[in-house]
Design a binder for these strands. Structure first.
Lengths: 219, 219
DNA sequence: GCTGACATGTAACCCGTTACATGATTCC
DNA sequence: GGAATCATGTAACGGGTTACATGTCAGC
C-alpha cells in the first residue's frame, strides 16, 4: 500500500513516466524504498483508475513514446490524508542481523568474513548517498534557493547517511568483539560441542563493546 | 525465504512449538524480524516435509496438547550453508521516512506532530529492547557463563538499541530544524503556493543539523 | 461472565519478485 | 556485433497479512 504514496508523493512536485519513477526509486528514494518496473506500471494503472493521477501520451522522435503522469486534485487530497494519518509502527526486517544472531553455528573466520562482506555492502550504499547529497547540495547553493520540500528531503538524506555510518561502525566493532572472544569457538570445525566459559573472562571486551549504551537510564 | 532460517536458527539451540516461536519473534527476534502464527504454522509444516525439523506430540494436562519441533542434522546443514552464503544486500523499506520526504504538503504543526508521534513509537521499542538486554544481562551474570550464541545475540541487541537511540535523536533534531525553518511553510493552510527563500537565510540551522556529517570525506 | 494465555490451524487476499515479451537507438 | 538506455507492459509465483475457526483453563 505504500508504493502508491511513494508515487503520489513524487508526482506532487513533478510529472513523470513509470520509467522516471523507477529511476527515482533507485536514486534518492532508495534511502527508504525500492520497487520494480513490473510493480510500478500496474500501480500507475490503478492510481489512474482511482482518479488520483492522469496521463497524457507524449510522442518522441528516436525514442519510444512515453506516458507522462500528473497528480490530480483528488490525488493531492489522498496524499495529504495519508501524510496526516498516524505513522505506522516500524516493521523491521533485517536479514543480516538474523544471520548474525545464529552465527555461533559457523567457524569464527567465517563470521569475520561475513561481517566484512556486509560492511563493504553498506559502504557502497553510503558512497551512493554521499553522491546524492553532494548533487543536491550543489544545486541548492548554486541557485541559492530553499523550499520546504528540499528541507524535508535533506532530513531524510541525513537519516540515510547516519544509518549507514552507524551500521558500518557496528560491523567494525563486532568484528573486534568476536576476535577478542575467539576462544568461545572450538578450534575444530567438526566439533559440535558447545563451549562455555566464565563471563568474567570476556567481560572487559564486552563492556567496551557496549560502551555508553550500558549507562543509558540505569541499564 | 528468511522466515525458515529464523525458525531453523532458533531451533538450532532450543526445541519449540509454533506458539513458542511466535513469542520469540515478538521478543528478542523482534529486533530484526516479525511474523504471524498463520505464517509460522504452515512454514513448520514445510520444514518438516523437507526433513529439516522433526516433531513430537506432547500431551499436557489443563492445556492443549502441543507439537514440539526439533532440528535435524539435515536442518543443521541447511542452516550452516545459509549462514555461509553471501549476505544479501539490504532492501530497506521505511514507510515513515517516505512520509517525511513528502511532508512539505502538510502544515508545519502537523509535521511536528507526526515526528513527535513517531519518536514516541521508537521510544517504546527502545524501552522493550532495554528490558530484553537487562533480562539477558542478569542471567549471564548470575550464572557467570558465556557462549558464542550469547555473544552474537548481544551484538544484535547492541545494534537494535543504538538504532532506536539514533532514530529518536534524529526525530528530535528534525523537529528543531523544521521549527527553525518554519517560515518555509505558508501561514495559510489553504494557500498551495510554494514558498522559496534564499538558502543563505537558513544555512546556519542547516549546517547545525548536518553537524559532522558534512565533514566526512570532503562532502 | 469476560478477558487473556495457551494451542493449532485454514482461506482469501494483497503485495512484491522474477521471468517473459517487444522494439528502437546510441555508444563501444 | 553487442551492451546499455529508453520505454511499456503481462504472467506466474512466492511471501506475508488479515480474517476466520475452535477449544480449554486460570484469574479478575
Amino acid at each position: 500500500m505504500s508504493l502508491r504514496y511513494g508515487i503520489l508523493g513524487f508526482l506532487s512536485k513533478w510529472e513523470a513516466t513509470g520509467y522516471d519513477l523507477k529511476k527515482e526509486f533507485d536514486d534518492f528514494m532508495s534511502i527508504f524504498w525500492h520497487s520494480h518496473l513490473s510493480q510500478i506500471y500496474p500501480e500507475l494503472g490503478r492510481l489512474e483508475q482511482d482518479g488520483f493521477i492522469a496521463s497524457r501520451m507524449e510522442p518522441q522522435s528516436g525514442k519510444p513514446d512515453k506516458k507522462v503522469y500528473a497528480i490530480t486534485e483528488k490525488g493531492k487530497r489522498e496524499l495529504s490524508s495519508w501524510l496526516l494519518s498516524p505513522p505506522e509502527s516500524p516493521k523491521i526486517k533485517d536479514v543480516f542481523l538474523m544471520q548474525v544472531s545464529f552465527m555461533d553455528n559457523i567457524p569464527i573466520e567465517e563470521v569475520v568474513f561475513q561481517l566484512k562482506a556486509y560492511q563493504k555492502e553498506r559502504e557502497q550504499r553510503l558512497a551512493k548517498m554521499k553522491r546524492i547529497l553532494l548533487e543536491r547540495w550543489e544545486s541548492i547553493r548554486e541557485r541559492n534557493l530553499m523550499k520546504s520540500r528540499i528541507l524535508m528531503s535533506s532530513a531524510v538524506v541525513r537519516r540515510g547517511l547516519e544509518q549507514e555510518l552507524h551500521y558500518i561502525r557496528w560491523c567494525k566493532d563486532t568484528i573486534e568483539l568476536v576476535e577478542a572472544c575467539s576462544h568461545l569457538w572450538t578450534a575444530d570445525a567438526e566439533d559440535r560441542e558447545e563451549k562455555t566459559i566464565p563471563f568474567s573472562e570476556v567481560e572487559p571486551a564486552f563492556r567496551k563493546f557496549f560502551g555508553e549504551l550500558l549507562q543509558i537510564d540505569d541499564i
